[in-house]
Write a protein that binds this DNA or RNA. Structure first.
Length: 890
RNA sequence: GGGCGGUUAGCUCAGUGGUUAGAGCGCUCGCCUCACACGCGAGAGGUCCGAGGUUCAAAUCCUCGAUCGCCCACCA
């Protein structure tokens, strides 16, 4: 029956597309996402990691939003003023590269357009993509406060950038230095170490002969970069290397160029590597640069900024690195100076954004002095003011922060926050909050602004306070800062999280957030990282269209835990969609039964429950609420979600709804409707953080069918989160209904085993071991209907069983099922004997434990007690079974 | 070279010392049973990577090893 009639306006299957937009607009219109500042309450604040403006959202963003929004919704329901602040990042280099690629399609470079027009071009992209991202975040259901939306280039955040730069400059923590940095020849900008990705690559290890000047022979050096030899300024050997120590102080002649190279001794040279002799190229290798510093060597540069060789390359000027490499090697070979070429594999650095090979080049760049900033950032984590979840990343963070090096912040790009430094011919550097019009030293009006922009992570690093108004002393900043949880991928722990920590401590004297929650990567079904080049990326919105936003979010938080990567596959999405549908249909059942029903007034605040089944489901609900609370507080979202999922499906739907059907038809039994409604309504609250749309929609329909109650919330999103009511815990009801369920299951089991037709009604007997038949009497109609039997609750069986009976020993008693035809007694005995054997093994194990004095004396009382109960229960069942076997003649 | 993580059912994964270790999907058998076939019922399926150890008790903690993966690091 794929398309039966809709009941009470609720279609047979949940249709996310029909409700999501309407629900979201409703939330926005009512202003639920905008918190009210209430000084008597502690707020809960999450700043959304700003997606790059020029990108589409990917699954990582969807995961981020799923996790953040579930925390945010949970806290909002806990009654905390909750701010979830959205924004976007101008993403300097990433955006510039994207737009450069776009204009490259028209055969243009940014230089053809010029700075101004190029930036205009980027802005039109930003406008388009910014809106697109906004809509995507909405479709995922993020309950973020759009009235506080920020962009890194907005005046506010820009002023935070300017203020931070000026302050750090004045404190001497920002300086300009000339040293070796990573240079991307394609982007033509400097990069920080973090922006360089290393990848193993095969290349040759070239062994080159450097003749000794005294004519006594030659040294062989090994290099992977033969073309850089053109600007070698020394040869280095390890002073402890017996092969060469006598050469220190002598000189060698640089092949091709003919320059005289001093032979120096330096510890940095590895004894075991290559030939033990190192060509020193301070201009193009960080190690060599340091050797050069130690020995006062000249630093020569052979590369232009576009990666071609410059005038220092002589006849190779103008060639690319790879052309020059080939040609230099060929010349060396011709001159008989190429000793040999070995196969070699080593890590080559590439630009994170454009994948071009990065060249170490000496250049003038602005740096932040990190040591003074890193120390308080280390302390904040060490002393626990900031907690990192999962905890293991604490060590990763500390290790990085403790070994941090100065951060190059200038980028030779056009898109970003321009460096607020002006230069005057008189040599003055002007750094101020206001743009200067003349040099304060010499009065010259002819001053020029630094053409470079700041690393995009400079502004991102200020995000927690710049979005709240800093450097202005705003009410938002005062109230919402420090923020509560920073939730993001562990891949940007250094890029972003670490920098927010030291910037916030520097600017605000305050930690930026109390907790860092790091999630893993979303991988494809084969476990491969999603990337555009591999073509295995999945668009979140396509999935939202197919399965609904709830299902996508639910799938992303299913079976995941902090810090661990996850694979997303169709099965997970389908299972999640099915769960939303299950909820929908349970609600459909309840709502349809509520129509025209009376006696519902107590649904909201249940009083004393007269029916055991009611006490059972309410007890279970509250236990689940307790578990969910525990897991939510422990950032175990996957576990919290699983608890509610299992409760709704396996207890409420599978058993309580089925039980209620019998009672709904009965005239004598108390109506299950108030409890049916109550438990569903509370479950909707528990589920709302995980399935915001379907729960809100169902909630509205449910409440429409119920009588108003005094403190009924306006919408589920602002309904108080249900905390466990321990007075509703009911061990006895749980055990008793558990026995009823066991009885039904075991009849079904026998029916299936003996292949009884579905509509054959059998007769059965149940001898309750402790004589407390009242439990089963109360549920008799349910048991008879569910198990399709006529059940007699007569006393214990006596004498031999009928030859047509199958028997089973349950916890609560002995079940006898009359199959109506002769049972194969041998098989039946076999089945019972094997069950008996299992029970005996179990009982022996329990017995061994309890006979162990160490266990009894050292284990907690409750554990011992539990084991005793188990043993006694197991012994009862063994007695039952033994008795049965006797009577059956086994 | 350091550091971290994974290894649990056929597959993907939960499991934060204490039930006879769980879920989804897949598989087998039976069902369109008046909320739901995006479903219902019943099953099969596990030396929790290996070896030691700590503990009354280990998938869980420790040590060593295997294996896959990630991060960091200036062996050219």
């Amino acid at each position: 029956m794929a398309d039966g009639p809709a009941r009470n306006g609720m279609p047979r299957a949940y249709e996310p597309g029909a409700v999501e937009r309407r629900i979201y607009e409703g939330w926005v219109d009512k202003g639920y996402f905008t918190p009210e500042i209430d000084r008597s309450k502690t707020p809960f604040t999450v700043i959304m990691p700003p997606p790059n403006v020029t990108g589409e959202l990917h699954m990582g963003h969807a995961l981020t939003i799923a996790v953040e929004d579930l925390m945010v919704r949970w806290h909002r329901m806990l009654g905390e003023p909750t701010l979830y602040l959205p924004g976007t990042d101008h993403a300097g280099i990433a955006t510039q590269v994207v737009v450069e690629r776009q204009i490259a399609a028209d055969g243009m470079t940014r230089h053809d357009l010029g700075r101004e027009r190029f930036i205009e071009r980027i802005w039109s992209w930003v406008d388009e993509y910014g809106d697109r991202i906004h809509r995507q975040i909405e479709r995922l259901g993020a309950s973020c406060d759009w009235s506080r939306r920020r962009f890194t280039l907005d005046p506010g955040p820009a002023s935070a950038v300017r203020t931070t730069f000026v302050n750090l400059y004045r404190k001497g923590l920002i300086y300009k230095g000339s040293r070796i940095t990573n240079w991307c020849p394609r982007c033509r900008t400097a990069l920080s170490d973090l922006e360089v990705r290393h990848r193993e690559q095969k290349s040759g290890l070239y062994h080159i002969r450097y003749p000794l000047e005294d004519g006594s022979g030659h040294l062989v050096i090994a290099t992977t970069r033969p073309e850089t030899m053109l600007v070698d300024t020394a040869v280095a050997v390890n002073p402890d290397d017996e092969r060469y120590s006598n050469l220190i102080g002598k000189s060698a002649t640089l092949p091709i160029v003919g320059r005289s190279l001093p032979i120096v001794g330096d510890e940095a040279v590895e004894l075991g590597f290559g030939t033990g002799a190192l060509k020193v190229t301070p201009g193009h290798d960080p190690t060599d640069f340091e050797i050069g510093q130690r020995h006062g060597l000249e630093t020569l540069n052979v590369l232009n900024l576009d990666g071609t060789l410059n005038e220092n390359a002589g006849r190779y000027q103008g060639q690319t690195v790879s052309e020059a490499r080939e040609n230099v090697v060929a010349q060396l070979d011709e001159e008989g100076l190429l000793d040999k070429v070995e196969d070699f594999s080593h890590a080559v650095g590439r630009c994170e954004r454009c994948d071009e090979v990065v060249e170490p080049i000496v250049s003038d760049q602005w740096y932040i002095k990190m040591k003074p900033l890193a120390e308080p950032a280390v302390d904040a984590v060490v002393d626990g003011r900031i907690a990192i979840v999962p905890e293991r990343f604490t060590k990763v963070y500390l290790n990085w922060m403790e070994n941090i090096r100065d951060w190059p912040i200038s980028r030779q790009l056009w898109w970003g926050h321009r460096i607020p430094v002006w230069y005057c011919e008189c040599g003055a550097q002007i750094v101020d909050m206001e743009d200067p019009t003349e040099c304060p030293k010499c009065g010259n009006a002819d001053i020029e602004r630094d053409p470079d922009v700041l690393d995009t992570w400079f502004s991102s690093g200020l995000w927690t306070h710049s979005t709240l108004g800093w450097p202005e002393q705003t009410e938002d900043l005062d109230y919402f800062h420090p923020t509560s949880v920073m939730e993001t991928g562990h891949d940007i722990l250094f890029f972003w999280v670490a920098r927010m920590i030291f910037f916030s401590l520097e600017n605000m004297g305050e930690i930026p957030f109390h907790t860092v929650y790091l999630h893993g990567l979303v991988r494809d079904p084969e476990g491969v990282k999603m990337s555009k080049t591999r073509g295995n990326v999945v668009e979140p919105l396509e999935l939202v269209d197919m399965y609904g936003a709830d299902a996508v979010r639910f799938a992303l938080t299913t079976g995941t835990s902090a810090g661990n990567d996850m694979r997303l596959n169709e099965q997970k999405l389908e299972a999640s969609r099915n769960f939303a549908n299950k909820l929908w249909n349970a609600a459909r059942f309840v709502v349809s039964n509520l129509q025209d029903a009376s006696g519902l007034d107590g649904w909201d605040d249940l009083g004393v429950l007269s029916h055991r089944e009611d006490r059972w489901i309410v007890s279970r609900l509250n236990r689940v609420a307790a578990q969910v609370d525990k897991h939510m507080r422990g950032y175990q979202f996957g576990e919290a979600q699983r608890e509610v999922h299992d409760f709704l499906w396996n207890e409420y739907c599978d058993w309580y709804i089925e039980m209620s059907k019998i009672r709904l038809r009965s005239e004598s039994e108390p109506s299950p409707l108030p409890v049916l409604a109550h438990v569903l309504e509370k479950t909707l609250r528990l589920l709302h953080p995980f399935l915001p749309f379907v729960t809100e929609e169902v909630w509205t329909r449910l409440l429409e069918a119920l009588p108003d109650s005094p403190d009924q919330p306006d919408a589920l999103i602002v309904a108080p989160y249900p905390l466990a009511d321990e007075s509703r815990f009911d061990d006895r009801a749980e055990a008793e209904v558990g026995s009823v369920i066991e009885l039904v299951r075991s009849v079904r089991n026998l029916r299936a085993e003996f292949r009884v037709q579905n509509n054959d009604r059998l007769s059965a007997g149940f001898a309750v071991s402790d004589g407390a038949t009242v439990v089963f009497e109360e549920s008799l109609p349910f048991i008879q209907s569910e198990a399709r039997i006529d059940l007699s609750l007569s006393g214990p069986l006596t004498g031999a069983a009928k030859s047509s009976e199958a028997v089973q020993a349950l916890r609560a008693g002995t079940l006898t099922l009359d199959l109506g035809e002769t049972v194969d007694l041998d098989n039946e005995l076999e089945r019972l004997r094997s069950e008996l054997a299992d029970l005996q093994k179990y009982s022996q194990r329990l017995n061994r434990n309890l006979a162990n004095d160490n266990f009894v004396s050292r284990a907690p009382e409750e554990v011992v007690e539990r084991e005793r109960e188990r043993l006694s229960g197991t012994r009862d069942r063994i007695a039952l079974l033994t008795d049965l076997l006797d009577r059956l003649g086994g």
